[in-house]
Design a protein around this nucleic acid. Sequence first.
DNA 1: CGACTGATTGACTGCCCTCAAATAGGGTGG
DNA 2: CCACCCTATTTGAGGGCAGTCAATCAGTCG
Lengths: 232, 232
Amino acid sequence: MKTASAVALPPGFRSTFFEGLTAPEIKVVLAAARQETISPHQLLQHEGDRATRLWLLVTGRAAAYRLADEGGKLFLRWVAPGDAFGLATILREPARYLVTVEAMQEASLLAWDLPSCRALVLRCPSLSKAVISVVANYLDGVIDALGARSFQTAEQRIARMLVVSARQLGRTGREGIELDLTNEQLAMTAQVGLFTATRKLSKWQDLGILKKYRGKIVLPSLSLFESIAKDR
Amino acid sequence: MKTASAVALPPGFRSTFFEGLTAPEIKVVLAAARQETISPHQLLQHEGDRATRLWLLVTGRAAAYRLADEGGKLFLRWVAPGDAFGLATILREPARYLVTVEAMQEASLLAWDLPSCRALVLRCPSLSKAVISVVANYLDGVIDALGARSFQTAEQRIARMLVVSARQLGRTGREGIELDLTNEQLAMTAQVGLFTATRKLSKWQDLGILKKYRGKIVLPSLSLFESIAKDR
DNA sequence: CGACTGATTGACTGCCCTCAAATAGGGTGG
DNA sequence: CCACCCTATTTGAGGGCAGTCAATCAGTCG
């Protein structure tokens, strides 16, 4: 039986969110989804708001962060295609979003509203486990970030963030992995001052281990930065 | 029908882990538990090990941390009576503990092994939601810690940790809230050098807003430290 | 009364943040 | 095609928070 809203996924689309679900379960989940589109700088969810939507990013890019008291943003992680968020929607009644998620590029996503989530969680018992998996993953990532912030130097954190970002949103170009990041964005994600980030990048460019363009960084080799991030 | 191992809980024992479960469900869960005891400095779980046990702390105190590369410990949170951990055990097969949990005092706990967890999760659908709640809670706490590390001064972090610790493991004495913490422990939990912690505590003692003894801190008023932690 | 662990204080160092000012890239409109 | 603007980037100088080292003191327990 066909559903009225046939969801179109890009060929080869994979999501860890679906791992652990059976094929029929995935079909049921997809059938309940609505497809949406969003523009850069728009908020997908705002921390503290009531959780009424579960999302799965299909294409594009978003960032999850928490707002600090004085207007600062505490970057938490990139949201890449295949990543789910708004998971608080699964919980029982009084659930609120933990973080704010903002689109960085034109993005398309799947969305499930509150009634759909409640229905799905009853029909697919594995769904809860999938959610636990994803949340545990986020937790792991944030703990890593905390460790980096506590035990690593600014240089190491920047190198680490280059590696992490490259894996999540890097394109493979002819000179190496291309990253669409401004110095300011990199600084924010690596928990480092803007000027510190600029200095380190300049130094690395002088050393010839990366190339910089306006709003773009090209890394010929990731392993170099992996060792900078770990060592010492 | 009575179970062979009747679990004895202290009067008035409450756990957020049980919120959202119905009374019969709680009974089923408790019936499957084994009661255990552990001594200070013993590890309840070790990060990276296969998750084979789900725990609920009944009495005593434990600490969750992650081991850094060079032997350092990244403190994550206190584990107080009513707190559950080892939640990775609920997940499907290849689950590993995310963090290390160490008993700080003589502690008694409830434990569920892998088969019990699998059985329980089938019998109690709400159990998964309870686990998600708890993990989300941990995530929230770690994000807070990351924000503190990024945006707050050493002094603010120490004040914050005094408040957090007082809430979780403070006793009410005649002079105020008593905390069994050494300077070194406080420094570790607040992500601050030992000497920095000592200096701030001395300063506060000179100001008369707290009293120190060997291995013990007494806070007449929490709100003072709340404002120190937030302000600026 | 030793021995050990925890606490204290001072002096020094250094990483990294802040501020100021100038430069360069890339797109737009005339 | 060029002038212009806005934003991203670069570089230098300075300063402060807090971490490190060293040495001493104090409390507790055997």
